[in-house]
Structure formats: C-alpha cells, structure tokens
Computed example of a mutant assay.
Amino acid sequence: MNVDSTLTLLGAGLLAGAMNAAAGGGSFISIPAMVFVGLPSVAANASSTVALLPGTLASAWAWRRDYRSLHGISSRTLLAISFAGGLAGALLLLATSSRAFDRLLPWLMLLGTLAFAFGRPLGAALRARVQIGRGAMLGAQVLLSIYAGYFGGGVGIMMMAVWGLLGETDIKAMSALRTLLVSAANLVAVICFAVAGPVHWPATVIMLVAAIAGGYLGAILASRMPAALLRGFVILFSSVMTAVFFWRAWA
C-alpha cells in the first residue's frame, strides 16, 4: 500500500466508523474507498464488510439488554434467519464476477441510498395503510438477510420499515434487534469471505483500525450534532458516490 492509499483508507475508516456510530451508512464510504485504492469491486465489498464488523459487533453488545421477541417471533428465530441469509448472500457475492458486480454496484448503492433517505417516512406512510402478517414478515426477513450478506447498504432501515408494517412501534426495541440481526448476517459473511479469500487484508486492517477509532468519535459526534445534519451528510455523500459509480460502470 502506498502513502496515498493508506491515507485514503484511514480517512474513510474514520468517517465510516463515525457515521455508523452516529447515523448509519458507513458502507457508502468504505466500499468506494476500497474501490478507489484499486481493489476489484467484489473484494472491496468483502473487505469493507470485514473492516466495519467490529463496530457493528460493539453496537450489538451495547444493545444486549434490549433484545426481545417481535410479535411472538423469538429473537433466536430471527437470529437463525439472519445467519442463514447472511451466508446465502455472501456465497452469492462470491459467485458474482467483478465485472458483473461493477454493473450491479451502482444499483445497490442507489437502493441503499433511497432506503436510508426515505425508509423511515415511507414506512410511516405505509403503516397507516398496510399491515402484514408474521409469515410475510419472516419472508421479508429472509430476503433482507440475504441482501445484508451480499451488500447491506441501508438494510437496517429496511428491516425497521418492514417491522413497522407488522404493527411494531417500539423504536428502541427495533433498533436493538436490527443491530443484532445485521451484526449476525455480517459476522457469517465475514467468516465466509475470510475462508474463501477475497479479502484484501492490508487494506482491511488499515480501515478496521481507523473504523474502531471513528466509532468512538462518532458516538461523541452524535451527542453534539443534530441527527438531521448527520443523516443529510450521509444522504448527500452516498448520492454523489452512487452517481460516480453509475458513471464508472456505464461511461
């Protein structure tokens, strides 16, 4: 790794860790950084997932006293779905060529950006008109867990929006469970990536260390800055990166 690449990864790791701790959306920063320092897109996605995992696990531990069942569906059932879906998503990513993923990545970033920007208000609007049953919710959870293992941008917001359609309104409980399930999907994906070998370890370790520091700073930042300002920054940055990756894939 040259000096410029190292500085890019350190800066991206700090920012991604801080944003995950404060508002979410760190992968919109970490994946582009990995690509811009020269990693193939599949390796960039896998390496980013590994680099950001300690922060998500720390968040899951912090929420440990708030886990509970969701409308009679035990957290263990949801956790099993997340492990299985995360594994399926990781294997699907490993089966995707870098060329194909280059074309798919901007669409995934667009989906994640839209979910991050509009997931909460859309979920609230849908709750007033639509309710789903437990079976539909479990089916959606399977798909979201696969998405989490494959890419994962905005998946936490998507989960909470789906749970809202079930009639769930306890934001604290949903936030805790979301953190646990996303962490589970990411953990099994990381194990899969580490065994299969697409992780670029020098870049990953640099970003991982920076993301841990960024996570600590992000917690301080979140207590001092308006949440709307932080979310606005994530939405603006991810929108710009999405446009850049569309240009990169199709120009």
Results as ranks from 00 to 15, higher is better:
residue 3 V to G: 11
residue 4 D to G: 13
residue 6 T to P: 15
residue 7 L to P: 00
residue 9 L to Y: 10
residue 10 L to H: 08
residue 12 A to C: 07
residue 16 A to T: 12
residue 17 G to L: 09
residue 19 M to L: 15
residue 23 A to D: 06
residue 30 S to N: 09
residue 30 S to Q: 14
residue 36 F to L: 15
residue 37 V to S: 10
residue 40 P to V: 11
residue 43 A to P: 00
residue 53 L to G: 11
residue 54 P to T: 09
residue 55 G to D: 06
residue 55 G to F: 04
residue 59 S to M: 13
residue 61 W to R: 12
residue 61 W to V: 14
residue 62 A to I: 06
residue 63 W to M: 08
residue 72 G to T: 11
residue 74 S to R: 06
residue 77 T to R: 15
residue 79 L to D: 02
residue 80 A to D: 01
residue 80 A to G: 13
residue 82 S to M: 06
residue 85 G to I: 10
residue 88 A to L: 15
residue 89 G to P: 13
residue 92 L to N: 04
residue 93 L to G: 08
residue 93 L to K: 03
residue 99 R to C: 03
residue 100 A to N: 03
residue 102 D to I: 00
residue 113 T to A: 10
residue 116 F to G: 09
residue 119 G to S: 08
residue 120 R to Q: 05
residue 124 A to T: 07
residue 125 A to I: 00
residue 126 L to R: 12
residue 127 R to W: 01
residue 136 A to N: 05
residue 138 L to C: 11
residue 140 A to Y: 12
residue 140 A to T: 08
residue 144 L to S: 06
residue 144 L to I: 13
residue 145 S to E: 06
residue 150 Y to G: 07
residue 150 Y to D: 08
residue 155 V to E: 02
residue 158 M to E: 01
residue 160 M to S: 01
residue 161 A to W: 02
residue 163 W to I: 02
residue 164 G to E: 03
residue 165 L to C: 04
residue 166 L to A: 13
residue 166 L to T: 06
residue 170 D to W: 03
residue 172 K to Q: 09
residue 172 K to V: 08
residue 176 A to K: 00
residue 177 L to F: 02
residue 179 T to S: 15
residue 180 L to D: 03
residue 182 V to G: 01
residue 183 S to Y: 04
residue 186 N to I: 04
residue 186 N to T: 11
residue 188 V to Q: 05
residue 189 A to I: 07
residue 195 V to L: 13
residue 196 A to P: 07
residue 197 G to N: 08
residue 201 W to P: 12
residue 207 M to P: 00
residue 207 M to N: 14
residue 211 A to L: 10
residue 214 G to A: 09
residue 216 Y to P: 05
residue 216 Y to R: 15
residue 220 I to Q: 13
residue 220 I to S: 14
residue 222 A to Y: 07
residue 229 L to G: 13
residue 232 G to T: 07
residue 239 S to C: 11
residue 244 V to M: 14
residue 245 F to S: 11
residue 248 R to T: 09
